[in-house]
Design a binder for these strands. Structure first.
Length: 341
DNA sequence: AAGCCCTGCAACCGCTCAGAA
DNA sequence: GTTCTGAGCGGTTGCAGGGCT
């Protein structure tokens, strides 16, 4: 006896959302913030189930969603993250804050899956491809023999991690000079150089209001809603200069943290010198210190491109030689979805 | 021009998990 | 400890639009 689906209620509308429904939903979220989806339909009179409202918000109306084609950078990140995390679309999406898990999932299913298949076939014929050997190298991670002893499993894991690092390094070293750090930056030359592709917080809402409510956009109502929006929703207005980190910097910081978490820097910090020094070689210890120094430099607004940090880490043979225990910690940190906001 | 097929994407469904009662 | 409910996630479906015959 399964649970009665929330959308089975009589009078609950299904299917595509109308602009009017979107506006109702957006204005509710502007006033009350996202959450409390359960009461939303009754309070707004929307004939939609709470789940549908949440989905519509998170996948479409939420500010900061980038739509349109995926860049090469994004594509590579998705491929690499999918190889590392599997079909954890929400986790993958947290590393691409401009994209929703649904978008990434769709993109994977419609584009990348096929590409990977083709490349897999090519790979079998012509040897390994740098980028895709990463995925291939890790695929047996999830399917490893359950009867394998813990020690064996850890050794396999260590081998997999090393293989992944090398493959990732190869992939990164072959790509164009645009670093993941730069990728965050807006490509629109018309706007100031610090503007991000991360859409303005009110962009989606304004689009709704302007597009569908016509000439009333200049009304006080709109400015009021924008104000409300900036209170309730993380603003990405690059012109903000009040000293508080705007969404752009938040986004960058978030991405940096995400990368650090993904590639184990965070775990280096958390396990840090004490624990690490007990098991790691002196060389590895030195490298950990180097990484920590780099982190401190970053914290003091010395802009070290993320790609440099990544490459340093990837190229770092000593890091590769750190005992399995530590890399296991590193891997475990992969599962911890970073909170970007 | 009409019909068919393919593709991309928005939305739904079923499930799990966490927190409150 | 159990039940209920809301939130979130991943897989799947259905529809619209474009391309091809």
């Amino acid at each position: 006896m399964g649970r009665v689906p929330c959308c089975d209620k009589v009078g609950v509308k299904k299917g595509p959302w109308t602009p009017e429904e979107d506006i109702i939903l957006v204005s509710y979220v502007q006033q009350h913030g996202p959450g409390n989806w359960g009461v939303l339909p009754t309070k707004t009179g929307l004939r939609r189930c709470s789940k549908s409202c949440r989905l519509r918000w998170t996948n479409y109306l939420r500010p900061g969603i980038k739509r349109g084609n995926f860049t090469d950078q994004e594509e590579k990140m998705i491929i690499q993250l999918q190889a590392l995390l599997g079909n954890k679309w929400a986790a993958i999406a947290s590393y691409l804050p401009e994209r929703t898990d649904n978008d990434i999932k769709n993109y994977w299913n419609t584009h990348l899956k096929k590409t990977m298949k083709k490349l897999d076939q090519l790979d079998q014929c012509h040897g390994s491809n740098d980028l895709f050997s990463l995925e291939n190298g890790l695929t047996h991670l999830s399917s490893s023999n359950s009867s394998t002893s813990r020690g064996q499993w850890e050794r396999t894991l260590q081998a997999d991690i090393n293989m992944a690092k090398k493959a990732l390094h190869n992939a990164l070293s072959h790509e164009n000079p645009t670093s993941p750090h730069n990728y965050i930056k807006q490509e629109n030359p018309q706007v100031s150089s610090t503007t991000t592709t991360y859409a303005s917080s009110t962009e989606n809402i304004a689009r709704l209001l302007q597009g569908w409510m016509g000439s009333s956009t200049s009304s006080t109502n709109n400015s009021e809603s924008s104000k409300t929006s900036s209170n309730n929703i993380a603003t990405t207005d690059s012109s903000s200069c009040d000293g508080t980190p705007n969404a752009e910097s938040k986004g960058e910081m978030g991405l940096m943290e995400a990368f650090e978490s993904l590639f184990g820097l965070e775990s280096f910090e958390s396990s840090s010198s004490d624990e690490l020094s007990q098991t790691a070689t002196p060389e590895a210890e030195t490298e950990v210190l180097k990484i920590e120094i780099k982190r401190e430099e970053n914290e003091h607004d010395v802009e070290v491109p993320l790609s440099v940090i990544l490459e340093n880490w990837l190229l770092d043979e000593n890091t590769l030689n750190i005992q399995p225990k530590n890399d296991l910690t590193t891997l475990i940190s992969f599962d911890e979805t970073p909170h970007l906001f």
